[in-house]
């Protein structure tokens, strides 16, 4: 059981939670995630650790309300307890000085991106961050990212904030302007697919991190498997970051939708119960 210390909404759908998890706070590094089970009846879902305070013994999680589980989590309040949190899981990002790093985040992808930007900057890199979303309200963490990046470019589909256009346009602008040594892209699978295609054109080594369906998070079930470089890998133990140019994004897009129908039904039942 982990106590919720702080909870706030960053947008209508996206919320941030600071929870007590002293051991995880001590050991977590950028790139790590946790498996969360909000209630005793709940499902186990992976969430990235976007920040931690080892002194206070807390970790910060950011999630978007999509299905039953994230809605249940969002309905918990400060002082309540989350049933289970286990972690830190996965492999930490390989943070080192490479020169200039281009970081691109879409939607809630900025949550896992934040600690990587932070780490890359502290390692002495020049870090340029591109944040992208459909509109102004969905651009998250802009202030926080500005505080730790050398430059932040905001792209929105409707131009309500920053520039109008896709994440790839923001990225290309930087790549054409200056030498980029490495890129990190985190967001919806479709966004990562096109971001990876963009950096591939310029031969820029690129990391992508993806939130697959998971159950245990320890390599026991294979629910999180996907094809990377022609081989089946388990995201929870082999990832969550992989060479973006080796990932079969189309397969991921399909696998993420595996339970769409079951989830929709469950969510409708949940809404009715809580109406």
């Amino acid at each position: 059981m982990n106590k919720i210390i702080k909870k706030e909404f960053l947008s209508e759908q996206v919320f941030r939670m600071v929870v007590s998890a002293p051991r995880i706070a001590l050991r977590r590094k950028p790139g790590h995630f946790v498996i969360v089970r909000p209630t005793a009846e709940g499902e186990r879902i992976p969430l990235t650790i976007s920040d931690a305070d080892p002194k206070e013994g807390t970790i910060t999680l950011i999630a978007q309300k999509v299905g039953v589980t994230t809605h249940k989590l969002a309905s918990l309040n400060e002082g309540d307890y989350v049933q289970d949190i286990v972690g830190p899981l996965g492999n930490a990002t390989n943070i080192r000085k490479v020169g200039t790093v281009l970081c691109a985040g879409g939607g809630v992808g900025v949550a896992p991106l934040y600690p990587i930007v932070d780490g890359m900057k502290k390692a002495g890199n020049r870090v340029i961050t591109v944040l992208a979303a459909r509109n102004k309200d969905l651009i998250l963490y802009e202030k926080e990212m500005r505080a730790i990046s050398d430059e932040v470019i905001v792209m929105t589909d409707d131009g309500s904030s920053g520039r109008k256009g896709l994440v790839t346009q923001g990225m290309e602008e930087v790549i054409q302007r200056e030498h980029v040594d490495e890129a990190v892209v985190i967001g919806p699978a479709i966004m990562m697919k096109f971001a990876a295609l963009t950096t591939a054109k310029y031969n820029i080594p690129t990391l992508a991190s993806l939130n697959t369906i998971m159950v245990d998070g320890t390599g026991m079930c294979g629910a999180c498997r996907w094809t990377v470089g022609g081989k089946t890998r388990f995201v929870c133990v082999d990832g969550p970051e992989f060479d973006a140019h080796q990932i079969d994004f189309d397969e991921i897009l399909k696998r993420l939708g595996a339970y769409k129908e079951e989830e929709r039904k469950a969510f409708e039942a949940y809404q009715q119960k809580n109406a």
Binding site: E43, V215, C221, G222, A223
Partner: peptide
Amino acid sequence: EYLTRVNLMGAASDERDTP
């Protein structure tokens, strides 16, 4: 995965969230 969903997570029950 199949057995864990059913046995550990109780996926067969309507009361449980795991699909």
